[in-house]
Amino acid sequence: MAEAASLRSVRLGRYWRTDSILHLMDPRSKLVAGGLITAATVVASSPWLVLMLFAGIVSLYMVARLPRAAILAALRPVLPLLLVLGLFQVVLGGEPAGLGGAGIPLLSWGPIHVSLARLIGAGLSVARLVSLVLLAALLLATTTISALVTGLEMLLRPLNRLGLPGHQLAMVGSIALRFMPILAEGLEAVQRAQLARTLGADRLSRWQVARNARRTAALIVPLFADAFRRVDDLTTAMLARCYRGGRGRTYYRHARMGGTDWVALGLAAAVLAFALAF
């Protein structure tokens, strides 16, 4: 039963309402600046730069006036994975370049040799991953889903001029986000109905692959059937309202780039340039 109830808490970052500068920024500039900083974190090779990016991203949480709980909530699901990856790096990873004289052996036990450089390398790759997880969570914590979709659609608008379906892509995204909770509710109902008929009440071992797959299929097939029934309904509804794609459409929400947005974009571009240069 606990499993059925957990469906509603979909594990995507949550929105925290405050009135910080980050919350008031245009979603477009947040998406682009976020992309630039992500790229900077991925390409950054110097240990100091990785640490500076990490500190910068954490300080953005303060700028956004998010509670400490927001950081913890973002990191809790990845913590075990990060620990495993970190350990793996310590034992098997390579040593980062440019750390003169840090190859001091700390521990040598059987085939396992741990040096200071390797420890630093593992710490850096964990810091890099934590930065990226925090950055994605920050975007979702300061931007509502509908603002994100509007921003994405506006960013994709130039594609329309090239004959590519920018509007349609954004429409796909907004339909997906609108219908995800509705489908989750339907899935939960199916799960409860099947539990009431004792399907899925007993725990199967991991070795019963075919039975596990069939049990999941018994949940997934009604989910897809529900989705395809809604496809029919929504298509009819959109046709009846004369939906004809992006041309000539007006918008309820308007986003405007302000001074803060340009400053943020400039800073993010500078960070990426710095990361590429060093």
């Binding site: 979909v10 796909v172 339909i175 997906a176 997934i220 496809v231 929504l234």
Partner: peptide
């Protein structure tokens, strides 16, 4: 329209499957 709507709902199912234990 049907293509756009189908892609949207299948994406909703994807998100549900990727982000929950189901």
């Amino acid at each position: 329209i049907r293509r756009v709507v189908t892609a949207g709902l299948l994406l909703a199912v994807t998100l549900l499957l990727a982000l929950t234990p189901v």
